[in-house]
Design a protein around this nucleic acid. Structure first.
Lengths: 170, 170
DNA sequence: TACTTTGTTCAAAAAAGTTTGAACAAAGTG
DNA sequence: CACTTTGTTCAAACTTTTTTGAACAAAGTA
């Protein structure tokens, strides 16, 4: 019965109550990470699907546009959160979720955090030079101290991130 | 010279080049955390100010509205990222930044991450019940496995966060 | 009491971010 | 070649979030 009902839903492109709940769970989840709703929907649906899904499945079942699905899948691929399923004869590509937390966290760190940390380090470096131009000695000392503190923050973060990923993998 | 130029700027309510750079640095920083621009501006200006600043200082020097400054300061207080400076006679309240990374991270975890983790746990619990209603045994098994995986993610995260804070404090 | 200073609140305006859908490209098929 | 399927791109529409600023409250002052 349920199998039948499920595949009926699949055909008309609607989500069952349970699927809707799971999808919403991931929508909330990715919002915390600063990612758009559609990304959460796509990952969530892949996560509870026993079979890999193609772009058109996502469009139909989630009721989102092809554009959203395409861009969402790209982002998820870049993050390493979905992979293409190997599917012999078919032309279209099917996707399955990465479900390993360590890998998910790794992708997020690599794509969303590292770049900011790196560009931040460059900016702080430039600021350090700018501070040397400051003529007032007391002000210069204060600014130097503050900038060193930020550098220290960033070094700490850089050290801790891989460790964090390691710990989450266990 | 420089002191004089600085206080002139302070009076007309503009930021020097160095201050602007530091403020922009923090604007970028808080964006990564999903917080609005004004929060980064306020924290950034406090961070490079040798003296505590009052709401009106922020309004004038950053060129933001009273409303923004008021709400931004509230958020920063809740996050534990600014504190009120004790300033004897004056009526208005002055603020200084918390510059201890451990404390900053602690506030962020407490206010922005924990609540989501907690409500997530509740939702997953409800989903676990919903899965038991699923009649197809294979589907039920699959869903149970996936849900347990998410539970495991959340337990791991809950364990790792305090550790993360600890490590950043060193 | 009337006036000033300090700060909060919240509806409306502005800005920022997301989604859509039509146009397009690439590749397979008959 | 003409047609279909699969997927991408991106300007415009839409949605969400942030900021503004005017009204208000609280508290000090004269």
């Amino acid at each position: 019965m349920s199998r039948l009902a499920d595949s009926e839903l699949r055909d008309v492109g609607e989500l069952g109550a349970l699927e809707r709940q799971v999808v919403d769970f991931f929508v909330d989840g990715v919002r915390v990470l600063g990612l758009p709703r559609s990304i959460g929907e796509i990952y969530g649906l892949l996560f509870i699907s026993q079979e890999p899904l193609a772009l058109d499945d996502l469009v139909m079942r989630l009721g989102i546009s092809k554009g959203s699905a395409s861009q969402g899948l790209r982002t998820l691929k870049v993050l390493g959160a979905v992979r293409e399923a190997v599917r012999g004869e078919e032309r279209r590509t099917y996707f399955e979720p990465a479900v390993d937390l360590k890998r998910l966290v790794g992708g997020f760190i690599r794509e969303q955090i590292r770049p900011h940390l790196d560009s931040g380090k460059v900016k702080i470096g430039r600021l350090g030079e700018a501070v040397q131009v400051e003529v007032d000695a007391g002000r210069r000392e204060f600014l130097t101290e503050r900038l060193e503190r930020v550098e220290h923050w960033m070094r700490s973060s850089g050290r801790v991130l891989p460790l964090l990923q390691q710990l989450l993998g266990e």
